[in-house]
Amino acid sequence: MCSENKMSGRGVYMATVVVNEKICDEHFLLRLYLAEFPSAAAGQFVQLQCRPPVAQAGAAEVARSEAGLPEFSSPELTDKESLLRRPLSLAGRRVSGDGVELEIIYRVVGTGTGWLAGTRAGQAVSVLGPLGNALPIIPDKPQVALVAGGVGIPPMIYMANALHNAGKSVTAFNGVRSKSLLPLSPGSEPISPEGLPRLCCSQFQSSDASAVVASDDGTVGYHGLVTEPFDAWLDGEAKAAAGLVVYSCGPEPMMRAVGEICIRRGIECYLSLERHMACGMGTCQSCIVKIRDDSPQGWSYKLCCTHGPAFDARDIIW
């Protein structure tokens, strides 16, 4: 199933589940082993086939019942319902033995991710990717803020790691609806209820990044929207705006608010968008984003899968 001699290496790969464990309500950590997989970077995603990979059976003789009727074993009758793959962002990639391990943190929202939640170690999963573009790391911006909400947090773990390796100083703002939905584990310091950055999340602490946690219901960290402690933090960092860049991933209203705050303050900001997509390869044309340009109408549709998933906040027309 591996791709053949592709320049970029992008292709369809067969993976084996190493770990698939629940890390909080609705969220699972999936670690996949692949004998080979191209280099990938934070911001990129893969398309997982959320059903058992089927061997092509077109040539096999159709089995018969005792009455001589064909026994239908077509995958559309035997598989779970989801036909299309599910786009999931990478939370990490590392070399493991002779191969590669990909880390994905996903939230169970429907049939496809529901099937994925039931996979066990050793099971095969078809992976298409890597897709999309890496989040841009800006050379002259030494300071970085990550603002994430819900299932937008996992790709920011990967990004924090990449930024740390690039020598950046990182602060991670994380918003959840409630404590039970926080896909992060404790660090060496307690989470600040005032929304102040602390070494309070192990996933970010490993990148020397302090973190803020906010919850809508006040069950963990700051009681309120994550954009509030983020905005307050910027007040203290205002002088550094020229050396600061912001990346955000999460629910669209949150990203929109983050974008508006940054535009108002003149801070460079990239929003990693989520769109329904069938292919992820640029052909189905479904994952459109309205982007400002210098055409007569002032905008054109760009594809989230091939042009994104991250876009400059100033360019997005909501």
Binding site: E81, L83, L84, R275, H276, M277, C284, S286, I288, Y301
Partner: peptide
């Protein structure tokens, strides 16, 4: 042609609907 507005697809049982609009 820019095509239709978002959303353009939805998955259904054993299929999908698309309305790309000949982009």
């Amino acid at each position: 042609r820019e095509g239709n507005e978002y959303p353009r697809i939805v998955e259904t049982r054993a299929g999908m609907l698309n309305a790309i609009g000949l982009a």
